[in-house]
């Protein structure tokens, strides 16, 4: 059945948007997750409150509602149109970042208290302690849940097809309108492409885990 693959070039035209939103969203999510995750552990009440509010807000409202709100309501509020692509990257990135902040928080809290105390005894500054002692030990523990969140991010990029962005799903819908009799092939192919993308992300994260594997062993047994 090679016939199915004549649909592929048209479908894959949407791949670039999907990849852009996933990659851009991942960067936004990483920064937001680190900021809010560490922010929730800050000694300053204000920073804790802001971080917690961000996380609760984005986790509590639905991703699609956030996307529509940014796309339809926000321009009315501020009086200017926002480009769909950056809006999508920001919204989905901040959404996943809110979940990521929990991962960061948990991993940082899981670093034994003695590590912090040793850093104090050696006169390291708080910043040195965070970046040289705590984070390097927390990162390996974060990787598996981060892998899951990246898959969630990839899946959520399908939503951008609902705000006029021409991603994989959007192209599939166009194809369906053109060739309704091939709808089975179209959507099987679409599912397959997403599945392969997920596999790619999974193996990327697994590779990173292996790369840090020696380090993880150390962390576990210390």
């Amino acid at each position: 059945m090679p016939a199915i693959f004549d649909l592929l070039p048209f479908l894959l035209d949407g791949l670039w948007v999907t990849v852009q939103v996933t990659a851009g969203g991942a960067v936004v999510a990483a920064v937001a997750a680190l900021g809010a995750g560490l922010g929730r552990l800050s000694k300053y009440r204000v920073i804790r409150a802001v971080s917690a509010t961000y996380a609760e807000f984005f986790r509590g409202t639905s991703a699609l509602v956030q996307l529509y709100w940014a796309f339809y309501a926000l321009p009315l509020l501020v009086g200017l149109q926002i480009d769909a692509l950056p809006a999508a990257i920001w919204v989905l990135g901040l959404n996943i970042g809110a979940y990521g902040s929990e991962v960061v928080r948990g991993a940082v809290l899981a670093v034994p208290k003695g590590q912090r105390e040793a850093a104090v005894a050696l006169s390291l500054t708080q910043r040195q302690c965070l970046w040289r002692i705590i984070i390097p030990q927390a990162v390996p523990a974060m990787l598996p849940p981060i892998g899951n969140l990246l898959i969630e991010l990839l899946k959520s990029t399908a939503l951008v097809s609902l705000v006029t962005l021409s991603d994989l799903t959007f192209r599939a819908k166009l194809l369906r309108d053109d060739t309704p009799d091939r709808v089975l092939e179209i959507f099987c192919l679409l599912l397959l492409v997403y599945f392969l993308l997920s596999m790619a992300i999974t193996s990327l994260v697994r590779g990173l885990e292996r790369y840090l594997g020696r380090r993880m062993d150390r962390v576990r047994s210390a």
């Binding site: 034994p112 003695g114 590590q115 105390e117 040793a118 005894a121 050696l122 006169s123 390291l124 500054t125 040195q128 040289r132 002692i133 390097p136 030990q137 380090r215 150390r218 962390v219 047994s221 210390a222």
Partner: peptide, 24 residues
Amino acid sequence: VFQHFNLFPHMSVLRNVSMAPLRV
């Protein structure tokens, strides 16, 4: 010096000892 050592598990022995003189 602590009861439970509190060595930094992600650093070699040499780094553990040289890190604070270097950074602090």
